[in-house]
């Protein structure tokens, strides 16, 4: 009996914490988004209807999705390339290898600060453009920060997430590195075949998972769109925050309906990625 209940006992403190602070928080959020603040209130979906019948919410959704998608795609591709570079620097240039860990240690808002410095209309890049004779005045430089396209936001995410993906892939590549190449060459495979048949299938599940983590994060993160965004269209988490802190109870419920919609989308995405990852693994018989 003791042996059977032991793992549950060990898990109890952690589960209690997550349950009280996370699950109950979500539960209370759901009930508040349905207009239930006390036991006498009647449950209704009016806030969700109001929220999603507003075209403003839809343009925020499109904007947020675009940022998340473009950031994930760019850092996914760049991160894959960087992971190969990491593999080589690990033996050849330990100093660079160490340096490449730096972006992992720093939060996004430091990156945001630097993107402002670099990309604003009178920023470093604009001055270089001036020196090269492309523009004669700051106003001629394109608006890259606090722009309607969210370019500054995307650039900040690329700065931070490319190393993240590279460092997720690095241990996988490290394990493949030499032994498998020798075996493949012995069986008569060339470099290209080796890449396509061995490296890519082994790296793909980890790459997909990392990309998903990046997407879920960039879709639901508040800080960078708050710092580098514009007032219209706003990213969903920023919109939610503004509604939440407006001091109006109706808007507070709207904010919770919106936040839970965000949580629902990332939750669904997480579930599908998990299923997809599992299917890939069982199909190819790859355990790592």
């Amino acid at each position: 009996m003791w042996q059977n209940s032991k793992p549950y006992l060990f898990l109890l403190p952690a589960i209690t914490m997550i349950f009280v602070l996370f699950v109950m928080g979500l539960g209370e959020g759901i009930s508040q988004s349905l207009g239930v603040y006390s036991s006498t209130d009647k449950l209704h979906f009016a806030y969700y209807v109001q929220l999603w019948s507003d075209p403003n919410t839809w343009s925020s959704l499109k904007f947020t999705f675009k940022i998340a998608f473009l950031s994930t795609l760019s850092s996914g591709i760049l991160g894959l390339i960087l992971s190969v570079v990491l593999l080589r620097t690990s033996d050849q240039t330990p100093l660079l290898f160490k340096t490449l860990q730096l972006p992992l240690l720093l939060p996004h808002f430091i990156g945001a600060y630097f993107i402002v410095l670099l990309c604003m209309q009178s920023g470093f890049l604009a001055r270089i453009a001036y020196l090269l004779g492309f523009i004669s005045d700051p106003s001629q430089f394109p608006i890259l920060v606090n722009d309607h396209w969210g370019l500054g936001i995307i650039l900040t995410y690329i700065w931070k997430e490319t190393p993240f993906i590279a460092w997720m892939l690095y241990p996988v590549l490290k394990r493949i590195q030499n032994t498998w190449w020798d075996a493949a060459r012995l069986s008569g495979a060339n470099r290209f075949q080796y890449m396509r048949e061995i490296v890519l299938p082994l790296v793909f599940p980890t790459w997909l998972t990392s990309c998903f983590i990046v997407f879920a994060f960039t879709f639901s993160a508040f800080e960078i769109p708050y710092l580098l965004g514009v007032s219209y269209p706003q990213a969903l988490p920023v919109l939610s925050y503004e509604l939440f802190t407006s001091g109006d109870w109706e808007k507070r419920s709207l904010a919770l309906a919106l936040s839970l919609s965000i949580a629902f989308i990332t939750g669904i995405l997480g579930f599908f990625t998990y299923i997809l990852g599992k299917r890939i693994r069982t199909q190819k018989g790859v355990g790592w």
């Binding site: 699950v23 109950m24 928080g25 979500l26 959020g29 603040y37 919770l256 949580a263 990332t266």
Partner: peptide, 15 residues
């Protein structure tokens, strides 16, 4: 909490 943003739960828990 890695997938579902924790700020959502904190908004709900605030009261």
């Amino acid at each position: 909490p890695l997938i579902i943003p924790p700020f959502v739960a904190m908004m709900g828990l605030q009261i």
